[in-house]
């Protein structure tokens, strides 16, 4: 069924290199492919330096990509775009940033921040229409109408992140890239924001590319997950597939590192460790191979057969 649906976003063989000097460049993303379908949440996880934020930024064209193909709403958005495609990309794909303190202009009031997209693309209409749309969105994200005249410094972190969401929502996007959108917030506020994002998804059928390192939240919000390490997609599949049957040793170590919210069990566990340098693996050798359902793992046939033969679920839980 998955295959029959039309993908909203398709990324094929994305490469993003950053040139450091004439001889040396950092391969932040090295041939990553994935698809996002309308109305679903795709979680990208991995440690810092794995390239997860870079992918988000490349997809929305904040970086000029080195190689690969990005298709959004059946239009190629990876190369030079015509005006219409560019406008479509700029309105239908939006982004929420990690740091709500740094991503809002401190000299603009909330009304102008949220309406900026409308202003730029000439969709604001009359000034009363413009303010009505902003006020509606404000209420939608759980902020009071009176806040429209205030400035970002007058808000708490959670409220600012709501403003960031409002700014993304006003363009009626089809895809929102949330780059560590909740990492900077307090635990109790994280749950509020995640709930809000889910509600909005139910109402508007917007898709999310949810980039995070907190696996328990990713597990909770995502329909499908991609695990990144050192610029390579290591393993991808539905949330269920990844969490109930992680195959790649890196994914396994990542899952076993999540603290388990039960003190009786957590006190007796030790996390699995994984070190690429000593693991004997070479990511560029293998290829993504299907291991059942939509579950794909990066490796050579031999490696994957090996991993599949041993069931390490007990080690991941960490208690014998």
């Amino acid at each position: 069924m998955e295959q029959n649906r039309e993908a909203l976003l398709e990324v094929k063989g994305l490469k993003q290199y950053f040139k450091i000097s004439r001889k040396f460049s950092v391969k932040a993303v090295d041939g990553v492919s994935f698809k996002i379908y309308p109305g679903e949440t795709y979680g990208l996880v991995g440690e810092s330096g794995s390239g997860k934020s870079t992918i988000g930024r490349s997809v929305i064209r904040l970086h000029e990509i080195t190689d690969g193909e990005i298709t959004f709403k059946e239009k190629d958005v990876s190369g030079k775009m015509d005006k219409e495609t560019q406008k479509m990309l700029r309105t239908k794909m939006q982004m929420i940033f990690q740091d709500p303190m740094a991503s809002l202009n401190p000299r603009k009031n909330v009304m102008d921040i949220i309406a900026q997209g409308l202003d730029i693309h000439g969709e604001a209409g009359s000034s009363s229409e413009r303010s009505e749309r902003v006020l509606q969105i404000l209420e939608r994200v759980g902020l009071s109408r009176e806040f429209a005249g205030r400035f970002p410094s007058q808000f708490s972190g959670g409220q600012r992140q709501r403003i960031g969401i409002a700014r993304a929502l006003i363009m009626n996007p089809d895809l929102i890239i949330a780059d560590e959108a909740i990492s900077a917030l307090d635990v109790s506020i994280q749950a509020q924001i995640v709930n809000l994002m889910k509600e909005i998804q139910e109402e508007t059928n917007v898709a999310y590319l949810f980039i995070a390192h907190d696996l328990s939240m990713v597990r909770y919000i995502s329909d499908r997950i991609g695990v990144l390490h050192l610029g390579h997609m290591i393993e991808t599949g539905t949330t269920e597939e990844i969490f109930s049957n992680p195959v790649h040793p890196y994914t396994q170590s990542l899952l076993s590192a999540i603290p388990y919210p039960n003190p009786m069990i957590e006190k007796k566990r030790t996390a699995l460790s994984y070190d690429y340098a000593t693991s004997g693996l070479d990511y560029s050798e293998g290829s993504l191979q299907n291991v059942g359902g939509t579950h794909e793992v990066l490796g050579t046939e031999e490696e994957i057969a090996n991993w599949l033969s041993e069931n390490r679920m007990e080690d991941i839980v960490g208690i014998k």
């Binding site: 635990v187 328990s216 603290p259 388990y260 919210p261 003190p263 957590e266 006190k267 566990r269």
Partner: peptide, 8 residues
Amino acid sequence: HDLGVVAK
């Protein structure tokens, strides 16, 4: 602020 850490 992470209760998972607390549990551990």
